[in-house]
Structures are given as structure tokens and as C-alpha cells.
């Protein structure tokens, strides 16, 4: 199989890149995603705040996804969902896997729009046991909002980035108790907007200059030892769930080791982590226009 332009990832950036490449004149675009739906992580983001610059409205993640997906339907971009890109080779070949088989795809240009993954607690030197009940914030967001899974009741959040604070609010709104948000710095890590919307109105405590030193619990997590970084003092706190928001890592394992060939472009969060979808989209559009123009 062949295509002029392969775009990996049908989230906001991938779709934006596809739309602008189409508008720039490229007529042979294949857009793939491992999920069964478009939008990447947007469908699990039920809060509002997407697309202010683009659409002049604060949309929810699913609404925003509907808008961009509808625009995609008016183009001839081939959308392939439920498809994993297994490997990208230096000879401009991708190996795709889905339930119908394995496909070797030759492309001229590749736009990688594979988003990011979350840093997990495994990377931190945390002592104690390794029980059930520890999740990343994005994982919990998917579990609650897309799968209807109830993750726990007494929740401690480690890290005060945007995702951590947005989930803190959702926990409160769904009747869970947020014991505290724990942050090693002396200021929250999120945008001010999310702090004022998600934390202040619900009186959620943020413990600054504090970290989780140890995890307790044999089967399910039963608590943690907190360490206050300035005094060194430690205290034990009970919880049945630990949610981590330790930051995002651009997901570009697919092209690790390929260097920077002239046919490869990174768009959106896999290039650098953007605070706002508008900014990821603007970056992806510029790349789509440039790359699409080569085939006009």
C-alpha cells in the first residue's frame, strides 16, 4: 500500500494537520489512530475550555471532537481507526496492524501526531509496597468518563498539573473525598485558570513542598507517608486511591532512533507539550500546510 502523506494520531493535532494538508492541495492522506474514535484524549475531557481561539467558544472535549471530525468528513482524507502503527522504518515504510491484518505502507511524508503519555510513579524513588489503587490522572479520566469505572473514594493526588487539578474537581463533584493535592514545588503546576476553577471553589487543600515518600497497603493502597521537603518531617495519611499527575512525556517511541530525516514532522504534543489545544492545533496546521503544499 502507498500514500503520499501518513499522519499517525487522529487527535486534535493529527486532524488539524490532515485538514490543512488537504486544504494545501494534498489529495492522498492517510490518517490513523489506535483508538476506535477520533479526538485522541479529547473524548474523555468532559470539562469545558477547548477551542476558544479556533471557534470562539469554550467547548467540551467531545463537542470539540465532533466539530473537527465533521470538518474531516468533508475532505477526502482516509481515516483508519482501531489501527496500531507497529513500526516506522527509515525507508519510509510503516507497518500497520488491525483486526483485518498487517499492512505495509509506503509513504512520502510522515506527520507524527501521537500526543504524549503520562509520567508514572514508577519513575520516582518512592518506598513501600506496590498495591492496587494507584492510577495516573489521565487513566482515571478515561476510566471514569469513558468506561464508567469507579476508581475509589478517599483520593490523594500527587502533582498539581492541569490534569491533576481538573480530576480533583471531578472527584469532588462525583462525591469522592479529595484528601489533598501534594506538590513538591511551592506553587501549583497548572495554568492559573484551572487552579481558580478547580481548586479554589471547592476548598481542596494543596500541600506545597511536600511529596509522597512511601506507599502502604498490602492488597489495595491503605495510605502514604508524606514528606514535607523543607522540614523533612513525615506524616502518615490514610487513603484508598492515589492519583498521580506527574507530567507528560511526548510520545515518539515510534521514531526513536530514526534521527531527523527530511520526511518526518512532529506535530502537537508529541513535539512539545502544549497547555492548550488551540496552540497544539496552530502548530499542526502550519506543518500540515507546509507538507501538504509539497503535493499540490
Amino acid at each position: 500500500m502507498k500514500t503520499e502523506l501518513l499522519i499517525v494520531g487522529a487527535g486534535a493535532a493529527g486532524i488539524a494537520a490532515a485538514l490543512s494538508a488537504w486544504e494545501a492541495g494534498c489529495r492522498d492522506i492517510l490518517l490513523t489512530d489506535r483508538r476506535e474514535c477520533t479526538g485522541g484524549i479529547l473524548p474523555q475531557c468532559l470539562h469545558e475550555g477547548f477551542g476558544l481561539a479556533q471557534y470562539g467558544a469554550e467547548l467540551t472535549g467531545p463537542d470539540y471532537t465532533d466539530r473537527i471530525t465533521e470538518r474531516l468528513e468533508h475532505t477526502g482524507v482516509r481515516l483508519v481507526l482501531g489501527t496500531e502503527v507497529l513500526t516506522i522504518r527509515g525507508d519510509k515504510t510503516a507497518l500497520l496492524s488491525d483486526r483485518s491484518g498487517l499492512t505495509e505502507l509506503h509513504f512520502e511524508r510522515l506527520i507524527l501526531a501521537s500526543g504524549c503519555r503520562e509520567r508514572t510513579i514508577g519513575s520516582l524513588p518512592v518506598a513501600g509496597t506496590r498495591p492496587a489503587g494507584i492510577f495516573t490522572a489521565g487513566q482515571v479520566q478515561e476510566m471514569m468518563n469513558l468506561r464508567g469505572q469507579n476508581i475509589g473514594q478517599e483520593v490523594l493526588i500527587l502533582g498539581s498539573g492541569d490534569l491533576g487539578l481538573i480530576m480533583a474537581r471531578q472527584f469532588v463533584l462525583t462525591g469522592k473525598h479529595v484528601i489533598a493535592v501534594v506538590e513538591k514545588e511551592s506553587r501549583y503546576g497548572s495554568m492559573a485558570r484551572n487552579y481558580h476553577r478547580c481548586i479554589v471553589p471547592y476548598h481542596i487543600p494543596i500541600l506545597y513542598r511536600t511529596t509522597v515518600a512511601a506507599i502502604h497497603g498490602e492488597g489495595r493502597i491503605s495510605g502514604v507517608t508524606l514528606r514535607h521537603l523543607d522540614s523533612g518531617a513525615e506524616e502518615r495519611l490514610a487513603c484508598d486511591t492515589l492519583v498521580t499527575a506527574l507530567g507528560l512525556i511526548p510520545e515518539r517511541e515510534l521514531v526513536r532512533g530514526l534521527g531527523e530525516p527530511d520526511w518526518l514532522f512532529l506535530a502537537g504534543n508529541c513535539h512539545r507539550v502544549h497547555d492548550l489545544v488551540d496552540s497544539a492545533v496552530a502548530e499542526a496546521e502550519a506543518i500540515g500546510t507546509r507538507v501538504g503544499g509539497e503535493f499540490a
Binding site: 492496587a132 469507579n150 473514594q153 492488597g219
Partner: peptide
């Protein structure tokens, strides 16, 4: 049921936490 699924045996249920209030 999903809330009976464990990480590594009874007591390590992945859902619900300690109180099972939902």
C-alpha cells in the same frame, strides 16, 4: 463484575477503593 477484578488476589481490587460506596 469489574469491581471484583484484582491486581493480585483478594484485597487488591482495582475499583471501588476501601468503601465501595458507588
Amino acid at each position: 463484575p469489574e469491581d471484583a477484578v484484582t491486581k493480585d488476589g483478594a484485597g487488591s481490587e482495582l475499583l471501588g477503593g476501601g468503601r465501595h460506596e458507588d
